[in-house]
């Protein structure tokens, strides 16, 4: 019975898994990039930009992801923004994730002792070089764990994309369950897929952390 079911629905499930991974990866990497830019603007940009960013962070963090997704997908057309479900899913993922990533980067910036930056200015390093050579490499130490953590949280947030009919994993599983009246097995398989993403993400995070903390170990 079940094996036959999974043969029939396997391709759809795998396709859903692929869409989930696509939305998750593009959305969260986009979120990282936007978050990083926000954190940089907040630190080096003019004062009023800081206030705008503050408001953005508060609003996005203060509303549920599903509402943001609804507004973008169903509200978008009113301002001429017609998006496919997958496009809406990815963009709303970027919008949703970026404030959290911005906060992680902000705390990372703050973790670099001010004296190191002064020392860099004293030998005449340009600010851009200070960012790339002094701040960023060291910042990876305190931010790797929270970044990994948030990537993991986001794997499961992808399930919400099903509400705007993104053909992702949960959407496919629900279709399979409804058509076949089986529930336990499809959702077990679904959990397995999420678990796989979480484990791999966690493993990569741990490896990155090992690598970026090399210099802290005494010989």
């Amino acid at each position: 019975m079940e094996t036959e079911l999974f043969v029939r629905y396997g391709p759809a499930l795998l396709y859903g898994f692929g869409i989930t991974i696509l939305c998750w990866l593009v959305g969260s990497i986009g979120g990282v990039i936007v978050g990083f830019l926000l954190a940089c603007l907040n630190r080096w940009g003019p004062r009023f930009i800081g206030w705008v960013i503050y408001a953005y962070v508060e609003v996005i963090r203060g509303t549920p992801f599903m509402i943001q997704l609804f507004i973008l997908y169903y509200g978008g057309p009113y301002i001429g923004l017609l998006l496919t479900p997958v496009q809406a899913g990815i963009i709303s993922f970027i919008i949703y994730g970026s404030p959290y990533f911005a906060e992680i980067f902000r705390s990372g910036f703050n973790a670099i002792p001010k004296g190191q930056i002064e020392a860099a200015r004293c030998v005449g390093l340009p600010e851009s070089r200070i960012l790339w050579r002094i701040i960023l490499p060291q910042m990876l130490v305190p931010i790797t764990a929270p970044l990994t953590n948030f990537f993991i949280i986001l794997t499961k947030e992808t399930a919400i994309l099903s509400v705007v009919t993104v053909p992702e994993l949960l959407f496919q599983t629900q279709t399979m369950a409804a058509e076949t009246f089986t529930f336990v097995e499809p959702f077990l398989v679904l959990s397995l897929f999420y678990w796989l993403m979480v484990v791999v993400t966690g493993w990569i995070g741990a490896r990155v952390e090992q690598r970026v903390t090399r210099h802290l170990k005494r010989a």
């Binding site: 002792p113 004296g115 190191q116 002064e118 020392a119 860099a120 004293c122 030998v123 050579r133 002094i134 490499p137 060291q138 210099h215 802290l216």
Partner: peptide, 14 residues
Amino acid sequence: IGMVFQHFHLWPHM
């Protein structure tokens, strides 16, 4: 203008 600080402020990852 070279400067040397009380707490060195070397860059620990280099």
